[in-house]
Design a protein around this nucleic acid. Structure first.
Length: 468
RNA sequence: GUCCCCGUCGUCUAGAGGCCUAGGACUCCGCUCUUUCAAGGCGGCAACACGGGUUCGAAUCCCGUCGGGGACGCCA
C-alpha cells in the first residue's frame, strides 16, 4: 500500500517547534515508505488565519528542508465540498438539525459542570420534530453519533485506545452560518486527499474518536493513526509562548543549522538504540512509528547547541563563510569585501570548531573582517599595558624580518625570540593575540598571523604601538 | 470535575522477564592535549515515582496510590 501523509497546521501564528517536529515525522515517514507528504493549511477560522502566518509556515518548512509534494491545499477553499458532505449525511438521516441557541448551550455547559460531568450536548434536537423549530433560528447540523458501545482507536504509537461512546456527543458538522467545523473538514479533506496515515500531536487523540464516528457514518476507510506526544517546556507544561514557544524562524535567527534542528527534533521522542548523530539520509532509512515513545519530552537548548556545534564542524567552509559574512555585514553595518571573505575562508577551519551557533561564529570571526584599527576589549587592553606593549615592539621588529609567512615558520621564529629573551611563549603570544584579534581568545595565533598576512599583521601591531 | 495518556540519571533516551552491579548522549566536575579559547581523548557525579501482587527471577507483566500532561467549543 502506498503511504500518504499530511501536515495540517492552522495559520494562526508562526510554525512553532512542536509543529515542526510533527511535520518532520510525517515527512520522514513518507520518505521512508516512498510515499507522499502533503501540506494542508487549515484556514477555516477566518478571524484568526492570516496570510503572514501561511507564509511563515511555508518559510519554516522550506528552511527545514521539509519539502511537501504538490501544491498546498487550503481548507477554506473546500468549504462547499465539506458542506455538501454534511447535507448528504442529513439526507441519509445520519445527521440532524439543531436549533439550540448559544445561550441554551451555555446553560447546558454550566449545568454539566455543576453536576461534575463533562460537557456534552444533550441531544435535544436529535429526535425532536423539526416542525417545533423556533422561527427565525438558523440551525446547525449535528452528527447522529452512536450513544452506546465504544470507539476503539487503533493507534500506532498509543496502542489501542478505547473511548466509551457515552463520552462523545453529537458534534456540530455545519455551523448555523453554513460554514463547516474543523472535525468535518479534516475528515473530508483527509479522505479526498487520500491520506493513509494521520501522524499528529496527541492533543488530537480524543478528536480521533469523534472523527472515526464521522468516517464510519460516511462509510469511508479509517486511516492509520499515530498520535505523537507533545513537546513540553522546561517546566513540563505544554510549550507555549510563555516559555519561548518560538517559531522556527527564531531558531534560524539564533544561528542553528536546519540539519541540527532536524537531528535534535528527531531524537525528541524517537530513538534508534544509542544513536545520537543521525544524518537525514540515515533517518529516512531508519524512521518508523515503532520507535516513537509515548511520554512527552522537554525541550533542551543545551543539547541542541551541542548538536549544532557538531554540524557546524561538519559544514563546508564556503557555506559557513556565506552564513557568517551575512551576519557580519549586519553587525558591522558594512559589506564584507574580497579580502574579508578570503580571510574568513582561510581561517574557517580554526573558527568553526569554536562555535556552537552561527551567532557565535560571526562573533569570533569578526576580527578577521574588521578594518583597522580594530576595537580592543578590556582583557586585551590589559595584555597591552607596559610589558606586553614592549614585547609587542620586539615582536614587530622580528616579524618585519620574517621571510616565510607561514604559521609553522612564524611559530619557530617567535619561539626562538621567546627563548633568547628568556620569556615563555605565552608572554609573547598573548600580547600578539590581543593586538591582532582585539581579545584574549582566538584560534591558534600563528594561524591567525598567517591568515591576516604580513601587511595587516604589522599594521595592527603598529596601531597598538602608536596608541597614545 | 469527567475522560484519555504518561512516569528509567537534572534533560533526551536504551531497555520488550534472567544479558542490568541499569547502557548511551547532553549538562556539570576532574585529568589530558596546549600560546589563549575551543574541539578531541580519558575519567567521575547522577535514575528504574511509591506500595502491593504474579514469577525460581521484574525497570520490564497485573492492581492500587501518588505525580505530571492532554482533551472536554457552532476554535483548530
Amino acid at each position: 500500500m502506498s503511504v500518504v501523509c499530511r501536515f495540517a497546521p492552522s495559520p494562526t501564528g508562526f510554525l512553532h517547534i512542536g509543529g515542526a517536529r510533527t511535520a518532520l515525522f510525517n515527512w520522514l515517514f513518507a520518505r521512508h515508505y516512498g510515499g507522499k507528504f502533503l501540506l494542508r493549511i487549515e484556514d477555516t477560522d477566518r478571524t484568526r488565519s492570516t496570510p503572514e502566518a501561511v507564509e511563515a509556515i511555508f518559510d519554516g518548512l522550506r528552511w527545514l528542508e521539509l519539502h511537501w509534494d504538490g501544491e498546498a491545499t487550503f481548507q477554506f477553499a473546500r468549504a462547499s465540498r465539506h458542506a455538501e458532505t454534511a447535507r448528504k449525511l442529513l439526507a441519509e438521516g445520519k445527521a440532524y438539525r439543531c436549533y439550540c441557541t448559544p445561550e441554551e448551550l451555555e446553560a447546558m455547559r454550566a449545568k454539566a459542570k455543576a453536576e461534575g460531568r463533562s460537557m456534552r450536548y444533550d441531544g435535544t434536537w436529535r429526535e425532536r420534530d423539526p416542525g417545533e423549530a423556533p422561527p427565525g433560528v438558523q440551525p446547525a447540523i449535528r452528527i447522529k453519533a452512536p450513544q452506546h458501545g465504544v470507539t476503539v482507536i487503533r493507534d500506532r504509537v498509543q496502542g489501542n485506545v478505547t473511548i466509551a461512546n457515552e463520552q462523545l456527543d453529537d458534534m456540530v458538522l455545519l455551523r448555523a452560518d453554513g460554514t463547516p467545523t474543523y472535525m468535518l473538514s479534516v475528515v473530508v479533506d483527509d479522505y479526498d486527499m487520500g491520506v493513509t496515515h494521520v501522524i499528529r500531536g496527541d492533543d488530537h487523540l480524543n478528536n480521533a474518536a469523534r472523527q472515526m464516528q464521522l468516517i464510519l457514518a460516511l462509510g469511508w476507510p479509517v486511516p492509520e493513526y499515530a498520535h505523537i506526544p507533545l513537546i513540553h517546556g522546561p517546566d513540563g507544561a505544554k510549550l507555549s509562548k510563555r516559555h519561548g514557544a518560538l517559531g522556527v524562524d527564531a531558531y534560524r535567527e539564533m544561528g542553528y543549522l536546519p540539519e541540527a534542528v532536524r537531528n535534535y527534533l528527531l531524537r525528541l521522542g524517537w530513538a534508534h538504540g544509542d544513536d545520537e548523530i543521525i544524518s537525514t539520509a540515515q533517518a529516512i532509512e531508519w524512521f518508523d512509528l515503532e520507535g516513537v515513545g509515548r511520554s512527552p519530552s522537554r525541550f533542551d537548548f543545551a543539547k541542541l547547541a551541542n548538536l549544532n556545534g557538531h554540524y557546524i564542524r561538519l559544514t563546508d567552509d564556503t557555506r559557513l563563510v556565506d552564513l557568517a559574512a551575512a551576519r557580519l555585514e549586519t553587525a558591522l553595518a558594512a559589506p564584507v569585501d574580497e579580502d574579508g571573505r578570503r580571510r574568513l575562508l582561510k581561517g574557517m577551519p580554526g573558527l568553526k570548531q569554536r562555535a556552537k551557533t552561527l551567532v557565535e561564529l560571526a562573533e569570533i570571526a569578526r576580527f578577521y573582517v574588521h578594518r583597522r584599527p580594530i576595537p580592543l576589549d578590556d582583557a586585551a587592553i590589559r595584555q597591552l599595558d607596559g610589558e606586553g606593549r614592549d614585547r609587542l615592539a620586539t615582536l614587530l621588529d622580528m616579524l618585519s624580518a620574517v621571510g616565510d609567512w607561514r604559521a609553522a615558520a612564524l611559530e619557530t621564529a617567535v619561539r626562538g625570540l621567546a627563548e633568547s629573551g628568556g620569556v615563555k611563549l605565552g608572554q609573547l603570544a598573548q600580547p600578539l593575540r590581543a593586538a591582532l584579534t582585539g581579545g584574549t581568545t582566538s584560534p591558534p595565533i600563528f594561524d591567525v598571523v598567517e591568515v591576516l598576512g604580513r601587511e595587516e599583521t604589522l599594521g595592527r601591531i603598529k596601531d597598538i604601538l602608536n596608541r597614545r
